[in-house]
């Protein structure tokens, strides 16, 4: 109660500039996207007509959409889970005090700072069955002789691996910052009670970190759902369309087939999916 009364007069003062700027920037693109999605419009062609929900129907009924959606779901779930688990583990380890901690922290951020297009190309090269360090040297030493990127299942796995590689550092940084908000006294108290690390983790760290952890999942989910560069340079969606996620399909529809109406419809569908899932997540973790 006191909290609210204290705030009465400053309610929106700090919020308005941000909201105004964002609204100004976002309203036109958003309306334009909605409008385009209701048009039959192949760019560079003269004809253009009202389509109603026709574009949405074409998008939702195409088998390619359904296949890409499935690929996206697998990609997003694995990539989010992988990078959160690894990032959390790293944050716990590097929250310890030891010599060289700062250097290791900085080293760990490197995969995030390599330009994504270069990252995709690097992994593609590394995994090449014949001339790549991993695919052509390490794996054969272990007896694995298949070409990972030539096999639909393994290609998807490889793309996920590369994305986890790029994105884990960001999750690590967020969760590490989150850990700083947990008061030391709680750990000391737990130690005096004779609780082991496992118990501290389950009873103190995870409950207290729930919000940051939830937020990390949401941010990571949004990122993963819109990932383009890494997949595009690594596999181009292939082999076939085995690693073609929705952003790649959208890019192809819009900028290869120039079907701007259908691309916009797909963008709206993707937006709806993301909004639905992230709002559910927000409610779940009570952010």
């Amino acid at each position: 109660m006191r909290k609210t009364s204290l705030w009465e007069k400053d309610k929106y003062r700090f919020l308005i500039p941000t909201v105004l700027v964002c609204a100004l920037l976002v309203s036109f693109p958003f309306v334009y996207m909605l409008y385009t999605s209701t048009q039959y419009w192949i760019a560079l062609r003269p004809e253009r007509s009202f389509a109603g929900l026709g574009n949405y129907r074409s998008v939702l009924l195409s088998t390619e959409f359904r296949q890409s959606l499935l690929t996206t779901v697998i990609f997003v779930i694995s990539s989010v889970a992988g990078s959160i688990v690894l990032g959390f583990a790293l944050a716990l380890v590097l929250n310890e005090k030891f010599r060289g901690r700062n250097v290791i922290r900085a080293l760990l951020t490197i995969p995030a700072i390599i330009p994504p297009a270069a990252a995709g190309f690097t992994w593609k090269f590394l995994l090449n069955r014949d001339v790549g360090l991993i695919g052509g040297f390490f794996l054969p030493l272990l007896g694995v002789k298949r070409a990972l990127l030539g096999d639909p299942g393994w290609a998807l796995f490889s793309v996920i691996l590369a994305d986890v590689w790029c994105q884990t550092p960001l999750m690590f940084l967020i969760l590490l910052a989150g850990l700083q908000a947990i008061p030391m006294e709680l750990f000391d108290a737990a130690r005096i009670d004779g609780a082991g690390f496992g118990q501290v983790l389950v009873r103190i760290i995870i409950p207290l970190l729930k919000r940051v952890l939830g937020l990390a999942v949401i941010i990571r989910f949004i990122f993963a759902f819109t990932t383009f560069d890494v997949i595009f340079t690594m596999t181009g969606g292939g082999p076939g369309i085995a690693t073609q996620t929705l952003p790649l399909l959208g890019w192809k529809t819009g900028f290869l087939y120039y079907d701007l109406g259908q691309a916009a419809a797909l963008a709206v569908v993707m937006l709806l999916i993301t909004v639905f899932f992230s709002s559910t997540l927000v409610r779940m973790v009570k952010l």
Binding site: K124, D130, V131, K145, A147, L148, G150, A155, P239
Partner: peptide
């Protein structure tokens, strides 16, 4: 080559250049 389903001209070139 086994990974051909993902090979672009760069991979064609690399394989041939590496004598493979």
């Amino acid at each position: 080559p086994p990974g051909a389903s993902n090979h672009t001209w760069v991979d064609m070139m690399n394989l041939y250049a590496a004598g493979k």
